[in-house]
Amino acid sequence: MGEISIKINIADRVYPLKVDTEEEELIRRAAKLVNDRIKEYQENYAVKDKQDLLSMSVLHYATASLKAERKVTVEDTTVAEKAYQLDHMLTEFFKKQ
């Protein structure tokens, strides 16, 4: 697909971007999540500085990303172990036949 130019508003600043058309919705949703997180921190904490709010939001999403990566790795390992066990069981079964 092609690239399009869009403008994304994060923390009251506009950022012009060139993105693939299939990624536009994802990027807009991500910007909304960041802005929602900033708003939440602004309302719940005595933080007014946009840089601090952005830093806290980035930390939140980076932590969530790392947790998701860890979970996928653990699940991949579990699936691989189960596949190995199944393969071993089938091998033993067919040896007896």
Score class of each variant (00 low, 15 high):
Gly2Tyr: 07
Tyr41Lys: 01
Asp12Val: 04
Lys96Gly: 05
Arg13Ile: 01
Phe94Thr: 10
Val58His: 02
Thr78Ile: 14
Leu86Phe: 12
Ile38Glu: 02
Leu86Glu: 05
Lys32Pro: 02
Val14Met: 07
Arg29Trp: 06
Tyr84Arg: 15
Asp76Ala: 15
Ile6Lys: 01
Gly2Glu: 13
Tyr41Trp: 09
Arg29Val: 04
Leu33Pro: 02
Leu86Pro: 02
Leu17Lys: 07
Tyr61Trp: 06
Ala31Asn: 09
Val58Ala: 15
Thr77His: 12
Lys96Met: 11
Tyr61Asp: 03
Leu53Met: 02
Leu33Asp: 13
Glu81Trp: 05
Phe94Ser: 10
Val58Trp: 01
Asp36Thr: 05
Met89Pro: 00
Leu54Val: 08
Glu24Ser: 05
Glu24Cys: 07
Lys48Ala: 02
Arg37Ile: 01
Leu59Asp: 00
Thr73Glu: 10
Glu3Arg: 09
Gln85Met: 13
Leu54Lys: 07
Tyr61Cys: 07
His60Asp: 05
Asp12Ala: 08
Glu23Tyr: 06
Val47Pro: 00
Glu23Gly: 02
Leu53Glu: 00
Ala30Trp: 01
Ala68Glu: 15
Asp36Ser: 12
Asp52Lys: 02
Val14Gly: 04
Leu33Ser: 14
Arg29Asn: 15
Ala11Thr: 08
Asp20Ala: 14
Val72Trp: 04
Val79Gln: 08
Ala64Lys: 14
Ala83Tyr: 09
Met1Pro: 11
Val72Gln: 06
Leu26Cys: 03
Val19Ile: 14
Val34Ile: 15
Ile8Gly: 10
Lys7Cys: 09
Asn44Tyr: 03
Asp36Gly: 03
Met1Asp: 10
Met89Ile: 08
Gln42Ile: 00
Glu22Ser: 07
Ala11Gln: 09
Glu3Val: 09
Gln51Glu: 09
Ser65Met: 08
Ser55His: 05
Pro16His: 05
Ala46Glu: 10
Leu26Pro: 00
Ile27Glu: 03
Leu53Trp: 00
Arg13Glu: 05
Ala68Asp: 15
Ile4Asp: 03
Gln97Cys: 04
Val72Leu: 14
Thr63Cys: 03
Ala62Gly: 07
His88Lys: 11
Val19Arg: 07
Glu24Arg: 14
Arg28His: 05
Val34Arg: 01
Leu53Phe: 01
Leu86Ala: 13
Gln51Asn: 12
Leu66Lys: 14
Leu33Cys: 08
Lys67Ile: 14
Lys82Trp: 06
Asn44Trp: 04
Leu26His: 03
Leu54Ile: 07
Lys95Leu: 13
Glu81Ser: 08
His88Ile: 01
Leu26Val: 02
Glu75Lys: 11
Asn35Thr: 00
Arg37Met: 05
Thr77Asn: 12
Ala46Trp: 03
Ala62Asp: 03
Val19Leu: 09
Val72Asp: 03
Glu43Leu: 06
Lys82Ala: 13
Lys71Leu: 11
Tyr15Trp: 15
Phe93Cys: 05
